[in-house]
Structures are given as structure tokens and as C-alpha cells.
């Protein structure tokens, strides 16, 4: 338990320092992008946020399967806290996207495939937590939530491919652009490097949030167990 605390503390200061460093780099050390101008800086928060959202829900997916397989409530707990963190990232993804859309596209929101499927992901996981709240039996809750978590995560590849499958206002992927089988991000290195750094720091930050939330959850379990013991 003590080593867990140390890791969390390390991740906390590491990610805060990393985020601050990236902030300085983004605002003081970068040239202005030539077609969008200053609002292009929103990219450095929007893109890492979507990578973190993807990862958070991938963890939900993996640990939901692990729970259904092994029936260990620890896996369900990890899926639950990751879904909570992912939901916050997803909300911020929608918000930063809307703010970025206004000066570049000329609108906060359009019902195109990319935006609608992302909103759908957010709504599915709102439902996920309503489902968890409505079931009082712990094992039943874990079972149902795992199934919904797995189904909900299937939306992620749809979101990712939406800009290729359908006509959207949202532009295709810059970072994961593939040309003739090779990865070739369409962004010059001086704008790409800080983006990659921000993504790395954001993943560290996600890990920090996940462990912090997991620890809270364990503390709560301890409390519930004690309460049950004292009432008997």
C-alpha cells in the first residue's frame, strides 16, 4: 500500500510538471500555424484528450472482459474507475472540440458522423453509471456493467473510422494519417514534437487519475466492510 502511495505521488508531480512544461513549450516556443493562426494551439489539448479517452475506454473494454472471464471484482473496479476518468476526458474532448470549431469551422456543433458518434460514446457511458447505480447486488452490477462496457467501447473504432467512412465536417486524422501503408502525419516536425510530448504527458496523467481513483475505491470498500461488520 505504501509503495502504491509513492507511485501515485510520483505520477502526480511528474504529470503536473510535464503538463506545465508542455504548456510553456506550446505557448512560448512554437511558431504560429499558417492557416488557422493562434486557435491551432487548441490542438495540443484536444488531440491528447482524445488519445486519453481512447486509452481509458480501451482499459474499460479489457478489464470488463477480464471480469467476465475471471469473476474477480478487482477487475470490475478498475473498469469502473477507468470509465469514470474516461467520461471526464470524453466531456472535455467534446468541449475543447466545440471551442476549437467556432473559430475554425464557424460553428460550435454540427451533427456530422465524427461528432455524433463521440457524443454517443459519452451518452452510453452516462447510461453505464446509471445502470451501476440502479443495481444493488454487487455481482449483478459488475456483470451487467461489464457487458454494457464492452458494447459501449465498440463505438471507439466507429468514431475513429467515421471520418473515412462518411462525409464529415471534421477533417481526417492528422496524427494517424497513413499514406501507402506508411505512417505519415501531415504536420511539420516543429508542430508535431510538442504534440507527441503532450500526448505522452497526458497518458501519464491518465495513469495518475486511474490509480488515485482506484485507491479511493479501495478505501471505500474497506469502509463498507467495516460498516457491515459493526452492524452484525
Amino acid at each position: 500500500m505504501d509503495s502504491m502511495k509513492k507511485i501515485i505521488l510520483f505520477l502526480e508531480w511528474g504529470s503536473i510538471a510535464g503538463l506545465a512544461g508542455c504548456g510553456l513549450w506550446i505557448f512560448l516556443g512554437l511558431p504560429i500555424e499558417s492557416s488557422q493562426g493562434f486557435p491551432q494551439k487548441i490542438m495540443y489539448i484536444h488531440v491528447p484528450t482524445f488519445v486519453a479517452t481512447y486509452l481509458a475506454f480501451f482499459v474499460v473494454f479489457a478489464f470488463s472482459i477480464a471480469y467476465l472471464w475471471k469473476r474477480d471484482l478487482m477487475y470490475d473496479q478498475i473498469a469502473k474507475v477507468s470509465a469514470e476518468v474516461g467520461l471526464i476526458f470524453c466531456a472535455l474532448l467534446l468541449i475543447t472540440g466545440a471551442i476549437w470549431g467556432r473559430p475554425t469551422w464557424g460553428t460550435f456543433w454540427v451533427w456530422d458522423a465524427r461528432l455524433t458518434t463521440t457524443l454517443l460514446l459519452f451518452l452510453i457511458f452516462m447510461g453505464y453509471f446509471l445502470l451501476r447505480m440502479s443495481v444493488s447486488d454487487r455481482d449483478k452490477e459488475a456483470r451487467l456493467a461489464s457487458v454494457l462496457g464492452i458494447i459501449g467501447c465498440l463505438d471507439i473504432p466507429i468514431i475513429h473510422k467515421s471520418v473515412e467512412w462518411w462525409r464529415t465536417l471534421h477533417q481526417p486524422s492528422t496524427l494517424f494519417k497513413v499514406e501507402s501503408g506508411k505512417a505519415s502525419p501531415s504536420i511539420p516536425p516543429e508542430l508535431l514534437n510538442p504534440l507527441i510530448a503532450s500526448i505522452m504527458v497526458m497518458l501519464l496523467f491518465y495513469l495518475y487519475l486511474l490509480l488515485l481513483r482506484y485507491q479511493t475505491e479501495k478505501r471505500k470498500d474497506e469502509l463498507n466492510q467495516l460498516l457491515a461488520e459493526t452492524q452484525v
Binding site: 486557435p39 494551439k41 489539448i45 484528450t49 468541449i95 471551442i99 476549437w100 467556432r102 473559430p103
Partner: peptide, 10 residues
């Protein structure tokens, strides 16, 4: 203002 809003809310 857009950049400040995006980073600020986050």
C-alpha cells in the same frame, strides 16, 4: 479567447 477558454475549462 477560444484558446484561453479551452485550456481554462480543461
Amino acid at each position: 479567447e477560444y484558446v484561453v477558454a479551452a485550456y481554462g475549462i480543461w
